[in-house]
Amino acid sequence: MAHDASQFSVDERELQSRRAFFELTDDDLRRLAALRPFAERHLDDITEAFYELLLGHLETRRFFPDDATVRRVKAMQRQYFLGLFDGRCDLAYAQNRLRVGAAHERIGMAPKWYIGAYRRYLGLILDRVFEEVGDPVEARAAYQSVQKLVAFDMSLALDSYIDANLQTLGRHQAAIRELSTPVIRVHDQVLLLPLIGTIDSQRAEQVMETVLMRITEEKAEVIIIDIAGVPVVDTEVADHLLKTTAAVRLLGARTILTGITAQVARTIIQLGVDISAMPTRARLADGIELALSIVGKTIAPKAV
């Protein structure tokens, strides 16, 4: 596996407290180790029956698009199954089980499917344990041990699934933030922010903060905000732009507003919004020219 999506990990203390809560004792582990020959005998039929469930439902079959995938996951499943009967439950074991949840999150398999799959596992094991272990008291104890470890595994898989999911969300939000406020340096001391899409107040705050940070970082004298890609410019959007302009002015820089369409110009005047604090231009090119003149540069035709 190339990378682990989940940062979630378990330390010795967490391992011990979780084992205590699942009442997973050393006796249980010994009992599981004693079932190892049983597990090896039933490795194939349990694995096959397990995949009957997963391949028998449309919702889960789509995770196994071809025979090669099915062969690969069956091999992994055999490892997983035998792991239950190794008779150990240490940090390495927990780390291995954590990967299950993260891997499922990565492929987009929701917890309900693998909780259901675990259920079938337990059912398959239950039948066979009671068939083969003669003494019902012993069989019950053996099955209880299996159940404890499977529940323990499930708890780890869920935790790592949730954690990986939160990180995916965080990454998406950061990406959206980055995409929604792409401040570009067009020239020494001149920045450009092309705004695209709807501006609500949360986004407006982000825009203001990003603009202010970038001006300070770049020591920019001018920021051009191009609103050609903003579908609706109402009083609220105008108000946000004016606030950003006021804050930019406090830093000692200036804002130029470009991309004012005929429709936007009409709206602004009809709404009675005073945006005289910002120089405005219809076209971005004119805004860039104005910005350059502010920083003491001009665009001149190349001498021939």
């Binding site: 203001m208 903060e209 202010l212 940070m213 001006i215 300070t216 606030k243 006021a246 804050a247 930019v248 002015r249 406090l250 830093l251 000692g252």
Partner: peptide, 20 residues
């Protein structure tokens, strides 16, 4: 001339309606 105002300070003052 007031110089070097930090981004956080500018944003906060403007949010309070104090644009100086």
């Amino acid at each position: 001339v007031l110089v070097g105002m930090r981004p956080e300070v500018a944003a906060t003052l403007v949010r309070m309606g104090y644009g100086m």
